[in-house]
């Protein structure tokens, strides 16, 4: 593999993603954690751009960084953080480290050509390719069409919208202040 501009950019985004992610799960201050999460998500957005999916990168920035991360920050601020907490980690954290490492090793052994080169298996044979065909220029248009095409993704698309609506209503209902709960819909009855 040659050192190209692209590979350097990939390296930057990959390190940004993984490094911030590592900080997300290790930092003591949860608010900082949320900011690192935004950085990590931004790194993923960069990877999407590299993968010729600028639309998804945009969505990633808007939905994840713009909405979900902000939502998380709200939640952090709404729930007072106990600074004098004994530990931010559970008692089982060494096991968790071991599990995560083993899991990673397992995945690496499958997706990288490492085992291939050692002659153990050839799972990664397809994964070494470097030059896939170009993405058609109208792919975004076609994606949009497919999402509302009854033969393709229209039903999942509609279901997803219903799911979003249900999540919206559910979230509102869950955090409804308990004292003021005046017969929410569903429990209403003539009794």
């Amino acid at each position: 593999m040659d050192i190209t501009v692209e590979s350097i950019v990939f390296l930057i985004f990959g390190v940004l993603t993984l490094g911030s992610a590592l900080l997300v799960v290790t930092t003591r201050n949860l608010f900082h954690g949320a900011l690192y999460l935004m950085a990590s998500l931004f790194g993923v957005a960069g990877l999407f751009v590299l993968l010729a999916a600028p639309f998804l990168a945009g969505v990633q920035v808007v939905v994840y960084i713009g909405a979900i991360a902000i939502l998380i920050i709200f939640a952090i601020m709404l729930t007072p953080q106990v600074t004098a907490m004994r530990s931010v980690r559970t008692a089982q954290w060494p096991v968790a480290v071991a599990v995560a490492v083993i899991f990673f090793a397992l995945l690496v052994s499958v997706v990288t050509p490492l085992m291939d080169e050692l002659g153990v298996d050839d799972f990664a044979a397809d994964f070494t390719q470097e030059n896939p065909p170009d993405v058609p220029a109208d792919s975004l248009v076609r994606l949009g069409e497919q999402l509302v095409d009854p033969q393709q993704f229209m039903l999942p698309f509609e279901v997803a919208s219903v799911l979003l609506m249900a999540a919206l209503i559910g979230a509102v209902l869950l955090v409804w202040p308990e004292g003021t709960r005046s017969t929410p819909p569903g429990e209403a009855g003539d009794d």
């Binding site: 968790a96 599990v99 083993i102 397992l106 499958v110």
Partner: peptide
């Protein structure tokens, strides 16, 4: 954690 451990065991066995 138990679930993950079981998953790991199964994954390893499979591999």
């Amino acid at each position: 954690l138990y679930v993950t451990l079981a998953l790991l065991a199964l994954g390893t066995l499979f591999l």
